[in-house]
Nucleic acid binder design. Structure first.
Lengths: 331, 331
DNA sequence: TTGAAAGCGGTACCAG
DNA sequence: CTGGTACCGCTTTCAA
């Protein structure tokens, strides 16, 4: 194969004497081309080193076999392993994924959606920023099949795969309460994010069930970007709030909090209890252990499954949120 | 904008009375279209909700404004943050990235390269599996601009951005030697990976410089996939090898090793010294600390920079490996 | 079973 | 400054 030269159907046609039409259909193994011909053409194609042009093919067929995955930050392990699983599953089905990071910014998310639309992706998997509802409404209007993951909108009907975050919050706080803690700090993400509200709701529920009043000052809402929870815990230290345990919004935040506590108040809080979410220890072995809530199903696979059906119009269900069950891991 | 209906140049032409040609050029702000006309057309486009079709545009122009990033595993934090930085830099320049995981498998890597080629990407950033040289030779033959990242081939000329891994290995082992250690275990990746050989070479150099003989039995070569270093350290424990320090191939592996030691030999090795590579603590705050070697430059940006130049034919240099300087971080 | 011809939606090139 | 037209490479449709 000559360096840099692209082989097209036309080249194969020239070599074999068939028309490009026949070549095209033969290479897709259509049965209306005789077996013999298909074989010849396949061989010729291989010899020439033919590789199809998906731009041309997409243009005509309207399908790109591409899916956009729009998430907060790929360097966040939670998203990283989500994307990895999505990629593997999609690859198996012959799909390629393009990645967009929103950095949790609404405008970036909008740009990502537009770019995906312009690239004519067949489907979108989105972990929405949720600061506003504009983007999701816009996306709905585009008519591209999509599913949300990790977060959902309470007042907009659309397919979403999320954890049962209320239960998750309840498990985390409930565990700490079970240990005898009463002053449990909650450091969590913004309330416009569904998991933000839901986990906090779970925290409240656990208190209520155990007859423990919630001290509103114990509830700290932060960004979910790196460094934010460190700030939050420092503020708590400055206020000398008396807490004996913490519910953190994610393992990453929990680590950050532990790190900060160790650095700034080593002695006082060395025996603090902490519980959080994501169970990243399931993914990487870390020599620091605390209870973490995880999902008992593989959310990536559920996403891919539903999106596939939507893309192929086998999805007759109306848009709905699918809550996946959670459990606590501590070993 | 009507739901699901795609607006094309033709629609704008119909609305404004210009030809699609004029529309196309106006929307790209070509100065040969009068300012007035450009403004009218831009407004009409906006009103109709026009979004270009990149498949069509790519087909004709030959450019996709897409770059493929082919790496081992996106859920590995090292790759995750690499990809994040690449994505941000590329996005800024109007490029989109598609992700392929090789899982460190040669065949997957080949498939990824083929898929990228078929999608007519403008460029490729690749962290090669290196098990064989077939894929890189194949890639070179395709004529797509590409750069390697993290690993290079000693006997194949191609652009690569890598750490100075010999120095890195020397720093890690040298540090431990400086602490007075003599029996330093080395747990590292396969030797067919350039960083595998180079870091080990650095380990040897450090010994040599300090007049300490290298015990070959202290050198353990493993996979770089999760779980492998855990296996390796267990084997070492079974052999009752007397070691007092460890050089681990990555922070992730170091954590895995510490985790395993704590689990299986808590008392005996609680004061072990360990040094490794990647400095992931720079990216996530983890409450466990040990020295780690990091790169003093942002490799992603260097990659993007060089690839951009190659894609735009501003790259007259001949293929070369670019070694980035490293340092030890411990605080 | 195969071929001919018409696009898909843009961009490039040349003419006016 | 704007229009006409060919064409990128493949798929679709219809005819033979």
């Amino acid at each position: 194969m000559e360096r840099g030269k692209r082989i097209t159907l036309k080249d194969i046609a020239a070599k074999t004497g068939y028309t490009i039409n026949t070549i095209s259909r033969a290479l897709k193994d259509k049965t209306d081309i005789s077996f013999e011909t298909r074989k010849n053409i396949r061989e010729a194609a291989k010899e020439l080193g033919y590789v199809g042009d998906s731009a041309a093919s997409s243009l005509r067929s309207g399908k790109t076999r591409t899916v956009a995955v729009i998430i907060g930050d790929i360097s966040n392990l939670f998203f990283g392993s989500l994307v990895r699983d999505i990629e593997l599953a999609m690859q198996e089905k012959g799909y390629t994924i393009i990645i967009y990071s929103t950095g949790e910014h609404t405008e970036w998310e909008r740009k990502a959606i537009l770019s995906a639309y312009s690239r004519r992706v067949d489907g979108i998997i989105l972990c929405p920023v949720q600061e506003t509802r504009d983007n999701i409404l816009f996306l709905q209007n585009l008519g591209i099949p999509f599913v949300l993951v990790g977060r959902y909108f309470k007042d907009i009907q659309s397919d979403a795969i999320v954890w049962d975050d209320v239960k998750a919050g309840e498990l985390a706080a409930g565990y700490l309460i079970g240990l005898g803690h009463v002053n449990i700090l909650y450091i969590g993400g913004p309330l416009y994010i569904s998991s933000g509200t839901d986990r906090l709701q779970g925290y409240r529920n656990a208190h209520k069930k155990n007859g423990i009043p919630v001290n509103e000052n114990m509830i700290r809402i932060t960004n979910i970007t790196a460094g934010a929870s460190s700030e939050a815990i420092l503020q708590v230290l400055r206020e000398s709030l008396p807490f004996t345990a913490i519910v953190a919004f994610s393992d990453l935040m929990a680590y950050e909090i532990l790190y900060t506590l160790e650095k700034h108040a080593k002695n006082r809080y060395s025996h603090i209890s902490i519980a959080s979410f994501d169970d990243i220890r399931e993914k990487i072995m870390l020599p620091v252990n605390f209870p973490s809530i995880r999902c008992i199903e593989n959310e990536s696979l559920v996403c891919v499954d539903i999106l596939m059906q939507k893309m192929h119009n086998n999805w007759k269900n109306k848009p709905a949120v699918r809550f996946l069950d959670v459990e606590m891991r501590y070993s």
